[in-house]
Computed example of a mutant assay.
Amino acid sequence: MRRLIIALLVLVGLFVAVDFGSAALAESAVSRQMREQIGLVDDPSVRINGFPFLTQAVSGRYSSVDVTASRIHVGPLQELGVSAQLRNVNAPLSMLLGSGPKTLSVQEAEGTVSVPATDVQRLVQGVQDLRIETIDEEALQQTVEDDGGPSSLLQLDPERAARFGGTVTVLGQEVDVWLIATLQLVNGQVQIEPRYIHLGGNDAPALPAVAQSTLQQLFTIRVNPGALPLAVTPTDLKAVNGALEISGTAQNMTLGAGATPATG
């Protein structure tokens, strides 16, 4: 009986090793495919979820596949981060591990592009040390009551607004500036529209109308992160951890050879 148990444990260990090894090979194949599909310089990180892998491989159907990549270049943007989860993926193992063209059928995909503050700064001339911060109802209330902000700030949705900070030159002097702006998606692009601009601390003098107008135009910008991963249609935008995150979903797409557009 003891020998039987040991033999079974060895078999289980071998099965797990083969399972993980096969998954690693398939993940590498998908990674190369995603690199070509998204147009990356390096292979992205790919993880095929679910255990055991071999039961999925036999059927050629995978419940979910995670894809992540960083430092992606799109136009003036240099440090985009991309993550996507592909759900209900159809890809026979023989095709994945073979040397021929790869085709993946995906029933649904959810993707996110992260635009860090350093990339946003590249689109705002004259601003240094740009920062992006989340904001809540309490912060909006404090801005109105303590900082003299307009009461219209209380009508903003904190999920669709953010606080930006940085250093600018105004009337020949380098000063700190911070502002509260709304975030919108316009034709797949990020629209940042200032609603309140403040220089320095609470005792800073009021901005002249000309300077106020200049800063308003300076921070009214659009950020085009390029296409979301795997042709995902952007549907959500928010500030998260010092960056702007754009997310969306797509259905019924084919990746690789014979690729077809996804439907939103």
Rank of each mutant, 00 (worst) to 15 (best):
L179R: 06
Q141N: 15
D157L: 09
P150I: 06
D157G: 12
E138S: 11
E159I: 09
E133N: 08
D176V: 10
Q141T: 15
F164Y: 09
R131M: 04
L156A: 10
F164C: 01
E145N: 14
E138V: 10
P158N: 14
Q142F: 11
D146K: 15
P158G: 04
T134W: 05
L154V: 05
I180Y: 10
S152G: 04
V170Q: 05
D146T: 13
T143I: 11
S152L: 01
D136I: 12
L156E: 07
L171T: 14
G188V: 07
R163E: 10
G188Y: 09
D147M: 15
L185W: 11
A181Q: 01
F164L: 15
V168Q: 07
F164S: 02
E159V: 11
T169M: 07
T167M: 12
A161Q: 01
Q142D: 12
I132D: 00
Q173M: 08
E159L: 14
A162Y: 10
S151Q: 14
V170H: 05
T134M: 05
I132V: 13
V175Y: 02
D157W: 00
G149Q: 04
Q184P: 03
W178M: 01
R163Y: 10
Q184N: 14
G148D: 15
W178R: 09
V175Q: 13
G148M: 12
I135C: 04
V177T: 09
R163G: 04
Q155T: 08
R131P: 00
D136A: 07
L140G: 03
L140M: 12
A161T: 11
V170P: 05
S151W: 04
I180E: 05
L156M: 14
E159K: 14
D176E: 14
V177N: 02
D146H: 12
L140E: 03
E145A: 13
N187F: 05
A162W: 02
L179Q: 07
Q189L: 08
A161N: 00
R163A: 12
V186P: 00
D146V: 14
V186Q: 13
G188P: 02
G149W: 04
T134K: 03
P150L: 02
L154D: 05
V144R: 07
L179T: 05
V144D: 02
L156Y: 08
E174Q: 10
A181G: 04
A139I: 10
L185M: 09
Q184I: 00
L153H: 04
G172P: 07
S152W: 00
D176F: 03
E174W: 06
G188S: 05
T143F: 11
S152D: 12
D157V: 06
Q184A: 14
P150C: 08
R131N: 02
P150K: 00
F164G: 00
D146M: 12
L179V: 12
Q173Y: 08
Q141K: 12
D146G: 00
I180T: 11
D146C: 01
